[in-house]
């Protein structure tokens, strides 16, 4: 899919995803080694976006499995269409049982769910398994077969093996510790908060109307906030939101009054706002 790491960065940048060297290298390796990519990091640093960007670059179809507590086989792999099977049985009343039986367990009555869909297709596919940490431990066991051999066993039909390996991205917020077995099957990528230079480029790309000096100040203040050990450190998404807010407010420079008014955009907890205000020498809120 990619020829070099620079190729990855360049093509991701075309879709509006600015990748750090770590991200570009890992995506390149995931493609080369044919291994799934496990992406961890705080909320709002672009984990899900990465999968979407890769799909766009590769011209691949994006299949997404959103994990939640209680997601199970019938939501993730496949399900038999019972209603349709019943109709089929009552429609073919004169048939012998053997004929009916082989017929109702055929592809026609199978409802593929994301994992099976991703494996069966012939076209290039990016499989995004989002928020893996939200799913139960049992679900991880299910993923192991899919991720290491790219195959799924349907007892009535046999084993479905991928003709073309999908590019798999798993994301996790570290809400729960993923099992060692799952981690070992993946390349690991931690996306942290970006370097100042990269973040400036992101702000410039997403909020082009903001002046250069203001962009610089915004990134510096956010950097300082992240060093403060808050309950929820502002992420890239918050930086961009803040930049948009400042643009909407028509602020020319960053001064005390503007920061005080808009601090709520980047910090989501009242204690954080107070702490940050104290550290930044803002007057009492």
């Amino acid at each position: 899919m990619f020829t070099s790491v620079d190729d990855v960065s360049a093509r991701l940048a075309e879709t509006g995803y600015l990748a750090s060297p770590a991200v570009a290298t890992t995506v390149f390796l995931a493609d080369r080694l044919g291994k799934p990519l496990l992406v961890e990091g705080p909320a709002g640093v672009g984990k899900t976006e990465l999968a979407k960007a890769v799909a766009q670059v590769a011209g691949a179809r994006l299949v997404r499995l959103q994990c939640y507590e209680g997601v199970d086989e019938s939501r993730a792999l496949y399900e038999w269409n019972h209603a349709k099977q019943l109709l089929r049985i009552s429609a073919g009343r004169d048939e012998s049982w053997d004929a009916t039986r082989t017929d109702i367990f055929s592809e026609e009555f199978l409802l593929p769910r994301p994992l099976l869909t991703a494996i069966r297709g012939d076209e290039p596919t990016v499989l995004l398994i989002d928020e893996t940490d939200k799913a139960d431990v049992e679900m991880e066991g299910l993923l192991l077969e899919v991720l290491s051999d790219f195959q799924i066993t349907v007892p009535e039909l046999g084993t479905v093996t991928a003709t073309r390996r999908p590019f798999v991205v798993l994301t996790s917020n570290a809400g729960r510790e993923l099992s060692e077995a799952l981690r070992r099957r993946c390349l690991f990528l931690h996306i942290g908060f970006p370097e100042e230079e990269l973040e400036r480029r992101i702000v410039r790309l997403k909020v082009p109307g903001l002046g250069e000096a203001l962009t610089e100040s915004v990134v510096r203040v956010v950097g300082a906030l992240r060093a403060m050990d808050l309950r929820k450190a502002p992420s890239v998404a918050e930086t961009v939101d803040w930049a948009r807010t400042l643009l909407a407010l028509g602020a020319g420079t960053l001064d005390e009054a503007v920061v005080r008014e808009s601090l709520g955009v980047i910090l989501k907890h009242q204690d954080d706002i107070q702490k940050a205000a104290a550290k930044l020498d803002l007057d009492a809120l």
Binding site: V5, P21, A22, T26, F28, L29, R32, E40, F188, L189
Partner: peptide, 23 residues
Amino acid sequence: EALGFADRELLREGLAATLLHGA
């Protein structure tokens, strides 16, 4: 093998991605 030795930082990231399991 895939990355080569041209860029040390890329090599660092590549090895980290394959060898490590947590931040």
